[in-house]
Design a protein around this nucleic acid. Structure first.
Length: 226
DNA sequence: GCGACAG
DNA sequence: ATCTTGTCGC
């Protein structure tokens, strides 16, 4: 698939300058009907070792199909700064996507979509960069707060509200007894559609299968390094 | 000024 | 993100 070069800011101010115009391009509406193949993106990293990124092509009916991987030396990584994760991991994900024999129709990313201080979490950033629908699934909260306590039952969900009251995603209980997942639209998809996609994915444990499998692949590749 | 803070 | 033992619970 065609992948435009990803800008590598040298510092935070440069990264901020790049975020602003892109956040304005995020489209928070759209349906995922017709989407059959998505790419689940997850990364694994151990200090002192290169970061391993995985793009797992997943067919909604057939399940996992192929795996694209990429590694980025630690020296080339932008530092981890909450709110700027995309500048650190997106380059690796783009390389992993290039390694796939075919392009996905949408992205499922381990991280926030618009549930972000400036409306551009890594899922949104990648979606805008590749002009693909995308959804963010994070394991912890970065921005926004659940409008009310999240019920304990599997399948329950409550909206995530920004300080100004604007809904930016959902706190979602994928399985009973597990900590919530935070689902937010990345790009070209609406709030409910983003949640609907995640709810429709097979989920054996806390994470939806596509992401869980991508995570296992990344972890296995990381451990295979040493 | 004091916390909070994706991976 | 990863480092780690035992431990609680289905």
């Amino acid at each position: 698939m065609e992948v435009p070069p990803f800008p590598r800011p040298k510092d935070l101010e440069e990264a901020q300058a790049l975020q602003k115009p892109l956040a304005a391009k995020v489209v928070v509406e759209g349906s995922l009907e017709g989407v059959r193949r998505l790419a689940a993106l997850d990364a694994s990293h151990k200090p002192g070792r290169p970061l391993v990124a995985v793009a797992l092509l997943y067919d909604l009916e057939k399940g996992p199909l192929q795996v694209g991987k990429a590694q980025v030396p630690e020296e080339e990584l932008f530092p981890y700064v909450p709110g700027f994760l995309s500048f650190r991991e997106a380059p690796a994900y783009l390389e992993a996507l290039k390694a796939l024999p075919e392009a996905p129709e949408a992205l499922l990313v381990d991280g926030q979509g618009i549930a972000h201080p400036r409306g551009l979490g890594i899922a949104s950033h990648l979606g805008v960069h590749l002009d693909l629908p995308s959804v963010g699934v994070a394991k912890s909260l970065l921005f926004g707060r659940p409008e009310r306590p999240l019920p304990r039952e599997a399948g329950s969900a409550v909206r995530l509200l920004a300080p100004d009251g604007r809904p930016v995603g959902y706190a979602y209980r994928s399985r009973t007894g597990v900590r919530p997942l935070y689902v937010s639209p990345g790009h070209r998809v609406g709030l409910e559609e983003a949640l609907a996609l995640v709810k429709g994915l097979p989920t054996r444990f806390r994470l939806p299968e596509p992401l869980r499998l991508a995570h296992l692949e990344a972890l296995r590749a990381l451990r295979a390094l040493d």
